[in-house]
């Protein structure tokens, strides 16, 4: 019991004193996860909308696959990205392995199916309401996509947020492709795993508190913005 309370106190001390090591890890974590979510959103939002609006052979299979990919195991994604970026891999010449860029790529692969699958559902529901009016105005599916994404913006924030939750919490992929190198690729989740194995519970707990607080803060802010905006725009 003393261990836990001691670790908790030490963790709070690290947080209150803005410990440089801890802040570096938090900063890199945010940089990697926000970048990965931005990349995933750029791909997933239009991809999901296109899947909702266009009819083509194999569409049903693609939707089932996309939904299944929402549960991609991070270690498997990490392994695949590792194989591609390793020196002997097809993109080995880029020298990206064990860099934050490799971590962004791995997390983007994990997050894209989540954003795309949720976007597909949201846009498909909106299209039921909009389809006739859009067609009447002269907007086919391709021209309607930007308008549908814009009109569904408050709901889609939740999809992007779900992606961010996935990215910031995963450890397997970034551990494999980043290598958990101090001052280079060490992020909150990999640091927690390492510090626990080393027995430094204070730093691990401090990072855990930051991770949970961050998640809570982002969710609360998004909820507040979404609630206000939806009330205004119906």
């Amino acid at each position: 019991m003393n261990d836990i309370s001691d670790a908790f106190q030490a963790a709070l001390h690290l947080l209150m004193s803005f410990d440089a090591g801890l802040m570096e890890i938090v900063g890199l974590s945010l940089q990697v996860s926000f970048s990965a979510v931005a990349v995933a959103a750029l791909i997933g939002l239009p991809l999901g909308a296109a899947l909702a609006l266009f009819k083509f052979p194999g569409r049903g299979t693609l939707i089932v696959m996309l939904n299944a990919l929402m549960g991609l195991p991070p270690v498997v994604v990490g392994l695949i990205v590792y194989l591609i970026l390793s020196r002997a891999g097809p993109l080995g010449v880029l020298g990206l392995l064990f860099t934050p860029t490799a971590m962004i790529i791995a997390q983007a692969i994990l997050v894209t199916p989540i954003i795309a699958a949720l976007t597909r559902q949201v846009v498909a529901d909106l299209w039921v309401e909009y389809a006739e009016q859009m067609k009447s105005l002269g907007a086919g599916p391709l021209r309607a996509i930007p308008a549908l994404l814009y009109d569904a913006r408050f709901t889609l924030v939740t999809a992007v947020l779900a992606g961010f939750g996935r990215a910031s919490a995963e450890v397997g992929a970034v551990m494999i492709v980043g290598g958990n190198i101090d001052h280079v690729t060490r992020v909150m989740t990999t640091a927690i795993a390492l510090e626990v194995s080393k027995g430094d519970l204070a730093l691990a707990l401090g990072l855990g508190i930051v991770l949970i607080s961050l998640s809570l803060a982002i969710n609360a802010a998004t909820h507040a913005i979404k609630h206000r905006a939806e009330a205004q725009w119906v």
Partner: peptide, 23 residues
């Protein structure tokens, strides 16, 4: 065409017309 139940975009009155003009 104007429908029985108007389908309006989730944006301002002016922007609804602006979108149609853009199309």
């Amino acid at each position: 065409m104007v429908f029985q139940r108007p389908v309006l975009l989730r944006r301002s009155v002016a922007d609804n017309i602006d979108y149609a003009l853009k199309l």
